[in-house]
Design a protein around this nucleic acid. Structure first.
Lengths: 146, 146
DNA sequence: GGCATATAGTTAGTTAAACAACTAATCAAA
DNA sequence: TTTGATTAGTTGTTTAACTAACTATATGCC
């Protein structure tokens, strides 16, 4: 017997991810208002570099769930913005290690504050235990499909 | 006191929507395998036309949470694929009413079955009450931000 | 050492999203 | 009835995702 939890009429929101889209749009607006000249996608790359600087493009692919061409172009654009620098690895010359510039390091605190603010607005009125359940479900969904 | 439910380290998945992205990618793969020559975005437009044919582009904007240029281009591409037809409204000549072609009507059953299949795979092992909580949370998030 | 294979990254082409600026049709109010 | 504002849709530009095809380096096996 199939795990038939969804009727036709309920499919749409889950597949199109309207909630996460709304969160990303709200955060993008906050970035624009704050004159942080960053797309959400660029921010998502910086997010992982703030956690660990000097990782390879492949590691950025894994961390951000993007494919290699996407990371190539994001790093291209971040380099144009002088926010990261490609450095060829000495151990393995196929690899580029990606390093933050001083300017990019300065953006961490402000952008993370805006991200937290956005999430708090998104989850206004949602009890903590329901948030916890949702996080678990989204993680299982991801694990089921990856 | 702020609704401070998120620590820094937990921001990423919620904002980037990795679960809904994974669902959309899985469904896209199923479409490709089934030789359904459709993007998920095109499917999301057809989805609403299957529910109600002959609605305007503005109504499609509201239904799919997209802006007008996005719908213009999606309808352009669906028209090229001969899946929809623009018909200028007689009551208000500013409006285009969008109608499914016979070919598009044929795609409903198969594509909806693949969508349900995808969701069942995504939610494998998730108890129904947790799914219910997640749906509620995602709806609240959307309402908070829209 | 030399060859096949795998891995890291780039390039090209199509589709799509966000934003701004635009045209055309409608409506409302003086 | 003409002017001004609103609404529906289009076009141009930039950024990004996905696929496929590509280059270059590294590895493993004989």
């Amino acid at each position: 017997m199939p795990n038939n939890q969804f009727k036709k009429g309920e499919l749409y929101s889950f597949i199109t991810g309207k909630a996460s889209t709304a969160i990303a749009r709200r955060l993008q607006k906050k970035f624009n208002t704050a004159q942080l000249n960053l797309t959400i996608e660029q921010w998502s790359v910086l997010y992982h570099l703030w956690k660990q600087d000097g990782i390879s493009q492949q590691e950025l692919c894994n961390a951000t769930f993007r494919d290699k061409p996407s990371i190539t172009r994001l790093v291209d654009n971040l380099e144009k913005l002088k926010l990261v620098k490609r450095v060829s690895s000495k151990e393995d010359r196929r690899m580029n290690l990606i390093f933050l510039t001083a300017e990019a390091r300065k953006m961490e605190v402000e952008s993370m504050a805006l991200a937290e603010e956005t999430l708090n607005e998104a989850l206004e009125g949602v009890p903590a235990d329901m948030v916890e359940v949702s996080k678990q479900v989204l993680q299982i969904v991801y694990d089921n499909l990856k």
